[in-house]
Amino acid sequence: MTRAVTIVDIARALDLSKSTVSSALTGQGRSSEATRRRVVEAAARMGYVTNRAARQLRVQSTGAWGLYIPAQVRMQSFYMQFTFGVVDEAAALGYDVTLFGRTSEPTQKMGPQIDGAIVADPLPDDPVIERLARTGVPLVTGGPMRGSNSRLADGVIEVDNYKMGRQVLDQLVRLGARLPALMAPDAMFDSPWAGDVRDTYLAWCEDHRIEPKLATIAVSPTSQDLDSAVRRLITDSSIDALVCAPQGLAGRSQPILESLGYKIGKEFHLAALVGDPATELMNEKITALDLTPFEFGREAARMMEEILQSGATIRLHKFHEAHLRPAVAAADTSGTTM
């Protein structure tokens, strides 16, 4: 049986946002006449048939949003705080939030039950995201989308990973580091954020004419796996700093390094690109980025409300502000914000 053509298919064919196609087909929003004609002609050519019943249900507000977080990272505190931020702001705006946990069942029928969906740190080609997009409701992502899903978001809010990553590396140089290594997420969580982290590090090394020292690891490794990874990485005695991308790994690496005789904060430096509030942001020996995930979630919710209220036909994009928390040794010579 041939699958019915959806607005997602039309959006991809025309390289337009999903919301632009939807507005053009319904006559709502601010699409130009030329865009409307282009969409309508493509819809007729591709055999698109409007699901009037589903559209009518979506016109009526349900008072609820959906929230989806990839299963690989649901136990990390960043995503928990992001969720609490979404829920807090949604409640202030008069909405409830439904957390989508199933990843293998169809989500099309969820469309009429929600007014919009928010996705934290979307993974490329995630089938759940595509199924959410096919419901026709607005989609906001905390972080960019790449791969075949790159055109599905109606709004994107993200941290400037390139800028903040370089700030961390530059800070380590001010502390005296000459060869920082990077511990990045492995292929099991190859999100756009993870790609940005690697690309930023490699570009920074090239700019400084430094040979990159990079290892990959699960975002939530066992203690044994982390111990092995740290020991393998520092077999190169010229490495004098370690930047950990996954949350919490810098704090967990500190006792491993100290057991090997390294003096953290003096002869060896640690940094966290997603600072854990308990083990890294309050640790005077670790330079860490505070991504303020609670506020991140609130901003994602506000973006969703803006899309729903304005009927915008262009994708919204915003950078969320992160903060650099330097190790105490250099706190007097560096800024604390972007």
Rank of each mutant, 00 (worst) to 15 (best):
S191D: 02
S334W: 14
M188E: 14
L281D: 04
S220V: 15
T35H: 03
L57V: 08
F294T: 15
D190W: 06
L169D: 02
H323R: 15
K18E: 11
L16K: 01
V328F: 14
E41R: 00
S334Q: 11
D160G: 00
T279L: 10
E280R: 04
G101C: 07
P326C: 07
V97E: 00
G143H: 04
L308Y: 05
G176Q: 06
L25A: 06
L25C: 00
S22K: 00
T313Q: 00
L233R: 09
P185C: 02
D125Y: 01
P70F: 02
D186M: 10
I217N: 09
S310C: 14
L257K: 04
S191N: 01
Y68N: 12
R58I: 05
L270E: 14
D236V: 01
L324C: 04
P255M: 12
Q56V: 05
P277C: 06
T135E: 00
D332N: 10
H323I: 11
S220A: 03
V73N: 07
R38C: 00
S259F: 07
D126L: 03
N161G: 12
A288S: 12
K213I: 06
H208C: 10
S150D: 11
R166K: 14
A92W: 03
D154I: 11
Q171T: 15
E206V: 04
A245V: 08
E305G: 13
H323K: 15
T235Q: 09
A245G: 13
R151W: 02
R166T: 12
A117T: 01
T35P: 00
A203F: 07
E299H: 14
V39T: 02
L25W: 01
G142E: 04
T235F: 12
W65E: 02
G85K: 05
R298I: 13
Q167K: 05
A117N: 03
Y48C: 00
